[in-house]
Computed example of a mutant assay.
Amino acid sequence: MTVNVPKVSVLVLGYNSLRYLPECLRSVPEAVGGSSYEILFLNNGTDASEALVRSEFPDVRVLASQGNIGFAAGVNLLATGARGEWLLNLNPDTVLEPRSIASLLTFAEGRPEFGAVGGLNVDADGEALSITHARLPSLQSILRRSLGIERRVTDYAHAGAASYTQVETLCGGFFLMRRDLWQNLGGFDESFFLYCEEFDLFKRLQMRGCKAALVRESRVFHDVGSGSPLSPDRIFYQVVASAHYAHKHFGKAEAGLAIAVIWISAIGRYLYAALQSWRGGRYPAMRRAFAKAAFEPASWMLGFNSPGADPRKPASREPTFRP
């Protein structure tokens, strides 16, 4: 692992990810196969992750925490310090299967027309997760997602599927890109605090005439949302980021319609969960998760330019709704 120019730099950005990090980091050596590599880690949170990595994983290069600078800015900072020919972005709430990175490297080096490659994100049962890839956001896809009819990717996990599939986007928590291409693209757009930054990156990749591929034999277990898929913060930032993307990439009228659909969807999900809350289960959490998006539209409709939506900016007002 002590080489001047490693083949791949594995970038791990944590956010209070202490309980996930050991298993994630231990899975890297078998995942890269015989290729040279380095691992870089940055903690955007406030837990003891940095101390744990320094103590138990001395070969990992730990960057000093800058506070919660956002996902895009955190990954960009890691990429700036990377020396590898390739960059592999990896969420800490993942566990790589053996040779999962090696498979991506082999494919990418043999198919240079693909600017980015990624593998299947799977759950504990080995079933492919819908976050593995997605279409680039559009008014139509936002409408489909709001109706719960966006296409899943489970068929790609079956043995009869093609070895790879050309896709529009890949999961931002597990994809490989050549470092010089990343630099030419300017990395992630740091105006995105959290979520949708990968959609923006792949939109710009597509605009350059490059393609992305999903390599089926590469697999990673991904505990989506770090075990809290209905966290109010997670849902809120997804809504804010969707609005931010719409303002950046859609025309004015299309962005307005997309934001209206997002709002109506949030209200519908809140009301549905509220009506079902008596049943317990996931419904009370779902009601809390969508409350702010449903009842405080001013907090997200301008994307990360909305008052208080970006924690890196001073908020002009405090939220008024409490579910």
Rank of each mutant, 00 (worst) to 15 (best):
R216W: 12
L18G: 09
F199P: 03
R312I: 14
S27K: 06
P314I: 10
C210A: 12
N121T: 15
H247N: 15
R99I: 08
M1Q: 03
V8C: 08
T94W: 00
S55A: 14
I69P: 00
P92W: 00
Y245W: 10
I264M: 13
E56F: 07
P22V: 01
C24H: 10
K248P: 06
R151F: 04
F295N: 07
P92L: 00
Y245A: 03
M177I: 15
A241L: 00
R216D: 10
Q183T: 09
S27H: 07
L87S: 03
F57L: 15
A64F: 04
T165C: 11
H158T: 15
V5W: 09
D59I: 00
G45K: 04
I131F: 03
E97D: 13
R234P: 08
Q183K: 08
R178N: 11
S191N: 13
E217G: 07
A102Q: 15
A161C: 10
I142M: 12
G280H: 04
E168P: 00
L170E: 05
T46V: 11
N184S: 10
H249W: 12
F295Y: 13
F175P: 04
S17K: 01
R312L: 13
L42F: 03
Y156P: 08
F221P: 05
P311F: 04
R135L: 12
E50M: 09
L170Q: 05
N91S: 05
G173A: 08
D155V: 14
R145A: 01
V224C: 09
L78H: 02
R219W: 04
G126A: 00
W86M: 13
R287P: 10
S163E: 15
L96S: 08
Y270C: 11
V53C: 02
L302I: 02
R152Q: 15
W278Y: 03
L63Q: 06
H222S: 01
E23Q: 15
L11S: 01
A31D: 02
Y195W: 11
S191Q: 14
R288Y: 06
D125V: 14
P112S: 06
L120D: 00
W300Y: 12
V153S: 11
Y195H: 13
L18A: 11
S138V: 06
